[in-house]
Write a protein that binds this DNA or RNA. Structure first.
Length: 270
DNA sequence: ATGGCCCAGTCCCTGGGA
């Protein structure tokens, strides 16, 4: 966890794979109260839109846009100010998996565009699931090119299911044949970055040991056997405003936690 | 000792996650 030193007005934006929003509602409401992000991207809702706990979240002063489906996947954006949202990642009209929602957030100084992304896991690789992952990454690249042309502050936030580099895993050797860390996966992620995106956390520190996921199995949390797979990618116009980034690691220590913790950025908006 | 869990569904097992 890194604390922002910024004294000027900031926009605080976080992303969190909650692994069932209904199982995690108590933790989610506590996080909204304590961290009070201006916007929060959620992934793995694991429920349809009509089962999303909208009223409890609105009660805390958040506007809500969901893109859910039965049992699996599902993404949402919560924000303090009202906003417009669009659902689904362009590029494959036959794709029925709810993994992408995009919002245009008003601020005191223009708009910030924000996407909540749940990129496919891709295991086992090779196979149909890995092919779907790479195709999804290609679609995200294509859509990103389109969005970058607006020259706005843009944040692609979510569970990318990509370990970018060895320093982003406690035990890289464990992941060598995994879809999260295969050379082709990492190359595709670099292709995304090379469009002009900044990995917000990496722009603030070179340190290893900063993770956002610890498996439920094998005592991964107790042994700090984590990986960094939840990312906030900033367009050039967003990167210009970056004032802080970090991970809210302490949420992994709660009772019945998500296996992911929130990651966040702060942007100067004065 | 190289494994240990958790979630939703129609549910006492399976598929999916990472």
């Amino acid at each position: 966890m890194r604390q922002s030193l910024a004294k000027e007005p900031v926009l605080r934006i976080a992303t969190w794979n909650v692994n069932s929003v209904r199982q995690r509602l108590g933790h989610l409401l506590a996080y909204l109260k304590e961290a009070s992000p201006d916007a929060l991207c959620l992934q793995e809702l694991k429920c349809q839109d009509d089962a999303f706990p909208r009223a409890e979240i609105e009660e805390l002063g958040y506007n809500v846009a969901t893109h859910g489906q039965k049992a699996f996947n599902g993404v949402a954006i919560l924000a303090k100010r009202p906003f417009e949202a669009t659902r689904g990642l362009p590029g494959d009209s036959a794709d029925e998996q709810a993994r992408y929602i995009e919002a245009v957030l008003p601020t005191d100084k223009g708009v910030v565009r924000l996407a909540s992304i749940y990129l496919p896991n891709g295991n086992p690789a090779p196979g149909d699931k890995y092919s779907y992952k790479l195709a999804f990454m290609n679609r995200l690249i294509a859509h990103s090119r389109h969005l970058l042309a607006f020259e706005e502050p843009l944040i692609l936030a979510g569970d990318f299911n990509v370990i970018p580099e060895p320093r982003d895993a406690a035990d890289p050797a464990q992941w060598t044949s995994d879809a999260l860390f295969l050379p082709q996966t990492r190359a595709k992620f670099r292709e995304q970055l090379a469009l002009g995106f900044t990995d917000a956390l990496r722009a603030t520190t070179d340190a290893g040991g900063l993770y956002t996921f610890w498996d439920y199995q094998a005592g991964s949390w107790q042994r700090d056997n984590g990986i960094r797979i939840d990312h906030l990618l900033l367009s050039p116009q967003a990167a210009d405003l970056l004032s802080g980034a970090g991970v809210d690691k302490q949420l992994r220590a709660l009772e019945k936690p998500s296996d992911h913790t929130p990651a966040w950025v702060e942007l100067r908006i004065d």
